[in-house]
């Protein structure tokens, strides 16, 4: 694998001038993913959302490669059309250059409204990479719950009130759903480990056929953390096993990181304003439920990955 020094020589495709918030995970994730495309020609597709509105305010653009946004729920379909055009024009000799195709969508545009379009694109087998920048709610419209929002989170449509302590339901497991499409490559990664992101993005670009990567991408406004701590917070998501790093290649599940000791979920919840209410007396049961769900999902994941299903030592 290339060293950081070598990776730094790859021309940036997502450059300065964008208006993402300080301490947002999107810019970091996008730069890491596109870096793995090395010197290829890339077309980026993008769902409506923070990344799109912050990077393409007319007449400016922060994209140093071709970019297309058309709507919210159709990044999968739009990029599949671009890829079909490439195949057709290449076959007919109307263009001679090679291209790679990647679409970015938030969790709203991927787990929810863009789910059908993404599923269709994956089933059709286009040679594309789809990257979900999962910040666990509709942040662009002002922090509304999505199906990626974790249980207990305080959002503007699952507000922590006197009776209801935040979101009632656990997250949709989208990475597993994408793996169930039997695509060549599906993976989950985190920006706290740049080697993991780079390796997975490179593999996603290299495989023939559709690839899906889910990246946990914290939102300072929605999660309410101290912005310089973003990478530390993601590390906590991985160490508490809230966000496991794994990959499914040609149907084979592989766990990429196993925490050495049992870190309770409170470590991840505590630095975030969206979970603050859970630490008030009377809400202990919610934290317990979150922990139970994290543990159960971890054990199920270990089993899928052929590992011994046991929790890390406390």
């Amino acid at each position: 694998m290339a060293t950081l020094k070598e990776l730094a020589k790859v021309e940036e495709r997502f450059v300065g001038g964008h208006r993402l918030c300080a301490g947002c995970g999107h810019g970091i994730s996008v730069r890491m993913v596109l870096n793995a495309a090395e010197d290829a020609n890339v077309v980026v597709g993008c769902a409506t959302g923070c990344l799109e509105v912050a990077s393409t305010i007319y007449p400016y653009t922060a994209w140093n490669c071709s970019f297309i946004h058309s709507a919210f729920e159709n990044a999968g379909a739009t990029i599949s059309g671009v890829e079909a055009a490439y195949k057709s024009l290449k076959k007919q000799g109307k263009i001679d250059k090679d291209f790679k195709f990647v679409a970015f969508g938030g969790d709203g545009g991927t787990y929810d409204i863009g789910f059908q379009s993404l599923s269709g694109a994956m089933e059709r087998g286009h040679n594309i990479v789809y990257v979900c920048l999962d910040n666990e709610a509709y942040m662009n419209t002002g922090i509304q719950r999505s199906s990626a929002t974790p249980m207990g989170a305080d959002t503007t449509t699952s507000p922590a009130g006197k009776v209801v302590p935040g979101k009632q339901q656990p997250r949709k497991d989208l990475t597993a759903i994408m793996a169930a499409h039997n695509i060549p490559y599906a993976a989950q990664t985190a920006i706290s480990n740049w080697q993991d992101v780079h390796r997975k993005a490179k593999k996603a670009f290299d495989v023939e056929g559709p690839a899906f990567i889910n990246i946990l991408s914290p939102c300072p406004r929605g999660w309410r953390y101290n912005t310089p701590d973003i990478v530390e917070l993601v590390k906590k998501a991985v160490e508490t096993r809230f966000w496991p790093m794994y990959e499914v290649e040609n149907g084979k599940w592989k766990l990429n990181y196993k925490p050495k000791k049992y870190v309770p979920i409170e470590e991840f919840l505590k630095p975030q304003g969206r979970f603050r209410h859970l630490f008030a007396p009377g809400n202990e049961h919610v934290i317990k439920a979150i922990q139970k769900e994290v543990d159960e999902r971890w054990l199920a994941l270990l089993e899928r990955c052929g590992e011994t299903p046991e929790l890390p030592p406390k």
Binding site: G45, S70, G81, V82, E83, A85, L89, I95
Partner: peptide
Amino acid sequence: SAAIGASAAG
């Protein structure tokens, strides 16, 4: 949407 992607692609 796919027709838009294809047409935009050239």
